[in-house]
């Protein structure tokens, strides 16, 4: 059952990314470029998404366990450290260069463009590198 939940959640996420236009790097860049022909669409995606999670997450987390067993896995860190800020800053630079964040990058693999494949390979290598360095630190 948990596996079915994962796949359904993934499908809806991918569909949402495609419908929202966020799988289109040009559209993301259109939001980030506030001096150009500004496209505020991304703010509506965030508004819709955060609207749903802000209302429902607190209700869900009143339960002692998820519906299909196990426990809730939530981050416990609360400090604003250099890792958080540095990581977010580095991610933003890569996002601005490409117009691709991890969700749209993986979802776009569906469209079989080898350039997206290249980006995803680089993303996985970068992820490995960060985890490798953190594991040794």
């Amino acid at each position: 059952m948990a596996n079915l939940v994962s796949i359904i959640s993934g499908v809806i996420f991918g569909l949402g990314l495609a419908i929202s236009g966020m799988i289109n790097p040009a559209k993301v860049i259109g939001f980030l470029d506030i001096f150009g022909n500004w496209d505020p669409s991304l703010a509506f995606v965030m508004g819709g998404g955060v609207g749903v999670t802000a209302i429902s997450f607190r209700l869900i987390l009143k339960r002692s366990t998820p519906l299909f067993g196990g426990s809730f896995h939530l981050p416990t860190a609360s400090d604003l450290d250099g890792r958080l800020l540095g990581g977010a800053a580095i991610f933003g630079i890569g996002w601005g260069l490409s117009g691709l964040c991890p969700g749209p990058a993986f979802a776009s693999l569906a469209y079989l463009d080898p350039k997206i494949g290249l980006f995803v390979v680089a993303l996985i290598v970068g992820s490995y590198l960060a985890r490798f360095i953190q594991a040794r630190a």
């Binding site: 540095g86 990581g87 977010a88 800053a89 991610f91 680089a122 970068g126 960060a130």
Partner: peptide
Amino acid sequence: LLLGGLLVGFGTQMGS
């Protein structure tokens, strides 16, 4: 694209 992918991967894991 390569540089962007590396930075997105590195930054998102580092910044959780």
